[in-house]
Structure formats: C-alpha cells, structure tokens
C-alpha cells in the first residue's frame, strides 16, 4: 500500500457482530480508531468489550461484519493484519516451562523478527519491565504481576502499530500502574503506536485516553473525548466515573428489555410489555 492510499484509521470495524447461539455478545458495532491514539473501551461487566477486542486480535471470528487493520482485511489476510498487532490479555497465560528469555525468543520467532533486532530488544524490554535478572528463570516461578509484565514485553517486542490491551492493570501493583500509564502515553506520542484498551479502572482511562467509547449490551452507546462525553451525559464538570454511571444507567424495565433482546428474544416488549432500550443503537 502506498503512502497516498494509507487509510485514515488503523482499525475500521463495520457492522461487527458476534453471536453465541441466540445470545448476541456484540451487536453490529461500527467504529474507526485513528492512528497514534490511546483509545479506551469502557463498559459494564458483560457489555461485550473483551469479545470486541478479541475479534480485533483474531482470537474470535465475527459472526458478521468486517475488521480492517491498517488496510488489511482480517478475514482475508489475517497473517498480515496480525503482524501489525500486539495483544495483552487480562490474564497472563504463558508457557510456564519456558524461561523469560526463551518466551521472548519464541515471540521473536512467531513474528519473524531479524536476529540482530531481537538480540537488542530482548534485554531492553526485560530492563524496561524490571525483569533483567529473571531472564534465565522459569516463568512458573514468577508472580502474577511479573508474568503480566513479561506479556507486556512480549507484546511490544515486534514493535506493533496497534497494541490491543484487555484490562492492563489487573494484577499490577501501584508502581506497575504508573509504569504502564507512562509507557502507553510515550508509545502513542513518541512511536505513533495506537493503543486500544479496555479497562474498568476509570482513573487510567481518564488519565491517558485520547478518545473513549462506552459499550453496553453489545452496542456502542457513547463516543468521544472525555469532554464530549461530559456534555453528552449532562455531567458538565463530572469525573469519568460520574459520566460513565450516568451513560450506562437504566431502569429495571429498560434493562430487562435489553437482556431479552440480547438473548435472542427479539420480541422483548411482548415478554416484558415494555419498549426496547433507548440507546443509540451501536452505529457511530
């Protein structure tokens, strides 16, 4: 792809849908994520955040819709799309019987990184994540936080253009929080990396995200900068927490109808004798 043809957004989701039987986890989401941003995905438990991120990384296949990563259609050219993407899951399941160094060398192999570059970056990343002295130790002896930091190192090793992060702060101590927040900002500002992260830690989202979306019941219900969300929610000077709670609040009947629709009982009103939820319907 020539420079002139470069797409505006690194991630383009078009009517993305994921169903498990009759249950709709993600309901026709359309979204564009611009280059070089820290982009936050917020939402209550079970809203569809993780499912959306996992589809973007190729861990799940959408039921319908398309995902374009830097111009590569994930359904048609998944290897090229994945080469540009790094992923950090919420729980750091890695091969416990490898050493930290072997794990990073394995990642280098998966991404076919040139030997010289891998030899330079592996010690550099181990140092960044304070794991240098553990390079020859088996991962099974690591704490949860150390494993999480190692997964961060592995995800950054191939210098991805897009870093997808699901709940980055789980298991990290306050020092780790600070390290990760500063790192994300630096990666976006200095290396033009796009960070797409889902989090329940609203303080993190408030501190580092350039733009946010809020997902509820598998649909995007709000999108914009924090200020734009404040205006939309009517919480003029409120914290992100206040904005989030206002945007996701619903009465019992609205919630029932949304759940009924999501679980494949599309005739929700006839069951609950109420109107369907009045959200924005997922189109952005």
């Amino acid at each position: 792809m020539t420079h002139a043809e470069k797409p505006r957004s690194i991630v383009v989701l078009d009517n993305l849908e994921k169903k498990y039987g009759k249950f709709t986890a993600v309901d026709k989401i359309s979204l564009e994520v611009p280059y070089g941003m820290v982009f936050g995905v917020l939402g209550p438990n079970g809203a569809g955040k993780t499912t959306t991120l996992r589809m973007i990384t190729g861990l799940l296949r959408p039921t319908a819709g398309s995902i374009i990563i830097d111009g590569h259609d994930l359904a048609k050219d998944d290897v090229a799309a994945k080469r540009l993407t790094g992923f950090i899951p919420d729980r750091p399941y890695v091969y416990d019987k490898l050493t930290a160094f072997e794990y990073l060398r394995f990642v280098s192999g998966l991404y076919q990184i040139p030997g010289k570059e891998a030899a330079e970056r592996i010690p550099e990343l181990l140092a960044t994540f304070e794991l240098s002295e553990w390079g020859d130790s088996l991962i099974e002896s690591f704490s949860h936080g150390m494993k999480q930091r190692l997964v961060f190192a592995g995800a950054l090793l191939p210098k991805p253009k897009l870093l997808v992060v699901d709940e980055p702060m789980v298991g990290l101590d306050p020092k780790g929080h600070r390290l990760i927040k500063a790192l994300f900002r630096r990666l976006a500002d200095e290396h033009d990396m796009t960070i797409l992260l889902s989090t329940h830690t609203l303080e993190v989202a408030e501190d580092i995200c350039d733009q946010l979306i809020i997902i509820n019941h598998g649909r995007i219900i709000a999108r914009g900068t924090l200020n734009e969300l404040r205006i939309e929610s009517g919480e003029g000077n409120g914290s992100l927490e206040a904005v989030f709670l206002r945007l996701t609040e619903e009465n019992v009947d609205e919630r029932r109808a949304a759940v009924a629709e999501r679980f494949g009982q599309g005739d929700g009103p006839s069951i609950f004798e109420e109107a369907p939820p009045t959200d924005t319907g997922g189109q952005v």
Partner: peptide, 11 residues
Amino acid sequence: IAAHGERSIST
C-alpha cells in the same frame, strides 16, 4: 541470536 544479523528468527 545477534549472529543471525538481518536474517529472521525461524518460526
């Protein structure tokens, strides 16, 4: 690994 130079590490 460094001795590989610009050669990629084999998947």
